[in-house]
């Protein structure tokens, strides 16, 4: 039995510990907002937050997130916990970012994690952080604009439900690059990296 906090609620999972979190969310917990795109950590459609940081759930075994706080798109909220009203979601609606919309849960989860770490990201930081999220419809221009808008309108950005629940601050929980030349770089972790608490190259 694997215990975790999911969108602020305690959850117990009786599954193969090697099962990637994506399938546990979709098949067992019926939370289908998190999407399958590649199964290999290459496209970002499955991005969720683990303790406020962006993770590819398709390559993250549930064993790696035991006792952790998970947030999915269904739990993304504003400061007061109002679901669907995080700064990125407001901006996504304002800029009419989605076309087919399938990748957008992952895009918004990545963007929210970026803004938690870097409330005012530069263009380069946006590109670097969002490079792992593919949108085949090609909404990138609007994703960039929406992230900038969300950053402007909410300097503290959005808090994910799990993040506020655990009471951790961005500084203590968000991994940053060990490279001194790029202190503010946000990493997106693959399962193995997270499981072993390594903070190496981004996936």
């Amino acid at each position: 039995m694997i215990k975790m906090t999911l969108n602020n609620k305690p959850v117990e999972l009786d599954v193969n510990p090697q099962m990637p979190l994506l399938y546990a969310l979709r098949d067992e917990l019926k939370l289908t907002g998190t999407k399958f795109g590649c199964g290999a950590g290459q496209c970002g459609a499955c991005t969720v937050h683990v303790n406020g940081q962006a993770m590819r759930s398709c390559v993250t075994p549930v064993s790696a997130i035991a006792e952790q706080a998970i947030t999915t798109i269904e739990g993304l909220a504003d400061h007061n916990g109002k679901l669907g009203e995080s700064a990125v979601q407001i901006a996504w609606r304002e800029f009419k970012v989605p076309q087919c919309g399938y990748c957008q849960s992952g895009q918004m989860m990545s963007a929210a994690a970026l803004l938690q770490a870097i409330p005012q990201p530069s263009d380069e930081q946006i590109i670097e952080h969002m490079q792992g999220n593919i949108c085949r419809c090609g909404t990138y221009k609007r994703i960039k604009a929406a992230i900038k808008s969300a950053a402007t309108h909410s300097s503290a950005s959005s808090l994910s439900a799990s993040h506020s629940a655990t009471g951790n601050s961005a500084d203590s929980t968000l991994p940053v690059s060990t490279s001194p030349s790029n202190k503010s770089k946000v990493e997106v972790f693959s399962a193995s990296q997270f499981a072993s608490k390594k903070q190496g190259a981004s996936s």
């Binding site: 907002g33 998190t34 999407k35 999915t72 269904e74 669907g84 609606r93 009419k96 919309g101 957008q104």
Partner: peptide
């Protein structure tokens, strides 16, 4: 107002993969 925008942004839009 786009028909599916709010559902997509809330993660509630239902695609073929999401059928349970």
């Amino acid at each position: 107002k786009l028909t599916d925008l709010d559902d997509i942004v809330a993660g509630k839009a239902q695609y073929a993969q999401d059928i349970q």
